[in-house]
């Protein structure tokens, strides 16, 4: 399981407990609770999974099973700036793999990883549905469309500064 130092606040924990309380009696409550937990903490450390398992009365193994099955749940914290490159078909035939490659070279990390200073993380995603803008990269929710590999470094620079 995740091996990071967990530094959740009391406020975060209260939010999580509230959310569990709210969903507790719904059938199939586990996924909605995990979505909310990931929103609160940014990822799902083992400590959080344990709380969910206890309070919902499901085995921890099941919580871990669900957390690792779905690609949107992460056991690792993400970077301050989260980069996501669309590798859906429409973006791929327009060269999004090259965008990813430039990012990996520039930030010296692989897709799915986070830079050691915690500033950037890169992920790939399957189709955000903005196929008209292919190829597409998303940084912190901001969509950059109709990209060429030559434009990537310029965009990254904006985020390097803060």
């Amino acid at each position: 399981m995740a091996n990071n130092l967990f530094d959740g606040t009391r406020e975060q924990m209260n939010k999580l407990l509230d959310c569990i309380e709210q969903h507790k009696s719904d059938p199939g409550a586990l996924m909605p609770v995990m979505h909310e937990a990931q929103n609160i903490y940014g990822y799902l450390p083992s400590e959080v999974q344990t709380v969910i398992a206890d309070k919902l009365n499901v085995p921890l193994a099941e919580v871990y099973g669900v957390a690792t099955f779905y690609s949107q749940f992460s056991l690792q914290p993400k970077g301050k700036h989260q980069i996501s490159v669309c590798l859906g078909t429409a973006c791929y035939v327009k060269g999004s793999d090259k965008i990813l490659e430039v990012l990996e070279k520039e930030l010296k990390i692989k897709c799915g990883e986070c830079t050691p200073d915690g500033k950037f993380s890169i992920d790939s995603c399957r189709c955000v549905g903005a196929c008209g803008l292919a190829p597409v990269m998303i940084i912190d929710g901001e969509v950059y469309g109709k990209l060429t590999s030559g434009e990537v470094n310029g965009i990254l620079e904006k985020y390097m500064k803060d």
Partner: peptide, 26 residues
Amino acid sequence: LRLGAGAFVCGEETALIASIEGKRGE
């Protein structure tokens, strides 16, 4: 309303049902 979490196989109806029930989408 139930949200998926990034698993293509959940488009398959029995996997989707498992996911709605809060399980791994198998």
